[in-house]
Design a protein around this nucleic acid. Structure first.
Lengths: 218, 218
DNA sequence: CTCGCGGGTTGACTTGGGGTCAACCGTTCG
DNA sequence: CGAACGGTTGACCCCAAGTCAACCCGCGAG
């Protein structure tokens, strides 16, 4: 059993590191959150870096599950609407109270060199998300090239995250939706009457999700 | 006159901070590059933060100029090709030897809180780039909504930068081009025969730029 | 019962980076 | 000449990461 203290450390670390950035957070702050001494900490983790990696791991599986669940819960017959529903998920993430960008992008920027463990974790996470989107495109839509569409949608999602985070502009989801609609329209076969509404600004799924809206992070 | 030493400090700072991240770089490394003592440094700058801000300022004007120049030098009669030419610039940036993402995004991620000076500088830079793109869309193309198109293209560019930086995938420019082509096709009036080639994968301007390809950073 | 062990404590310590300070040096320019 | 400028050295402070020794407590097994 991973000793509930370890868990609590990881969770506190996620919160702190995500909000303030890894290098900006002293280990002491995390320790204060958990109510533990430094010496005790180093019996659970070898280093601050290892704590961060554990935090990323947690976020990684958690986010994949959340993404999958939320997409599934948007089950509808229309493949184009399904794909657009992706951006309802992104919207929830972006509009969550504590949104500070995608934690994996953040960490990849703090550790710019590709070989660093944190950077690798970020890359792996992105691959995982892309493969979720690819599944969706393959199974549920009549796309002419699901893999290409997944790449495109993921690039748009990244753009939405980072634009929102850097500029603070809450419009970026709407921009992303418009771009996504263009891409989806271009990629989808001309069935279901879904191909020619490329520049409608607001997805029809926008209002479907009105849940708690807490504690999300891309 | 800003005392060429100051300039050299800024330039060394740009290199170091960009490659390794701000917090990862000790001031001593920058000082070693320039060949100056710590005390001397603090006669030029109040703090490491101020050095970083100066470095961002330099990059900001430099990048704006570069962007403007490179776009202008792609002057051609076809508005759609003009807009697509934007992505030749992005491609050069992304494929430059020392590409490590957009330095402004990087710094905005290292300083996630919106009120921090570095974060503000990043936001301002992005606004400036967007207004350059908006100019282009307004002057040179028959876009139905230039402002909206500028937002969309900038979001795509961000997506290309960050995807490339996080995953290391050099394909991301091609993905971005495809997405951009969809958007441009959807946004452009149906003149010049430019509207229905939305999913052609490679822009025709790709090969036009074969210059030195050194020292660019988004 | 006691021994070991897991989880925790304290306090003192080292190392490294940001940043300060005092004192000194050489060139240039009015 | 002397002030101002750009530079030096070496000692110093503070803070955060990480180490170490010593101690405490509860608990299950021999």
């Amino acid at each position: 059993m991973p000793s509930s203290t370890r868990r609590r450390l990881i969770e506190a670390a996620v919160r702190r590191f995500y909000r303030d950035g890894f290098r900006n957070v002293g280990i002491d702050q995390v320790l204060a959150d958990v109510g533990i001494s430094k010496t005790a900490f180093y019996k659970h983790f070898e280093s601050k870096d290892e704590l961060m990696l554990a935090a990323l791991e947690l976020k990684n599986i958690w986010l994949q599950e959340t993404f999958r669940d939320m997409i599934r819960s948007h089950g509808g017959p229309d493949p184009a609407a399904q794909l657009r529903g992706l951006f309802d998920v992104v919207e929830r993430v972006i509009n969550s109270d504590e949104f500070q960008g995608c934690i994996f992008v953040n960490v990849a920027m703090e550790f710019p060199l590709a070989h660093e463990p944190a950077h690798l974790a970020a890359a792996e996470h992105k691959r995982a998300i892309e493969s979720i989107v690819r599944e969706l495109a393959t199974e549920e839509a009549n796309a002419d090239d699901p893999a290409a569409m997944a790449q495109e949608l993921c690039l748009i999602i990244e753009g939405a995250y980072v634009t929102r985070q850097v500029t603070g502009d809450p419009q970026s989801i709407e921009v992303a939706r418009r771009v996504a609609n263009s891409v989806i329209a271009a990629r989808l076969q001309d069935r279901h009457g879904a191909s020619r509404d490329a520049s409608t600004n607001i997805s029809d799924g926008s209002k479907r999700l009105l849940l708690t809206n807490k504690s999300l992070s891309g």
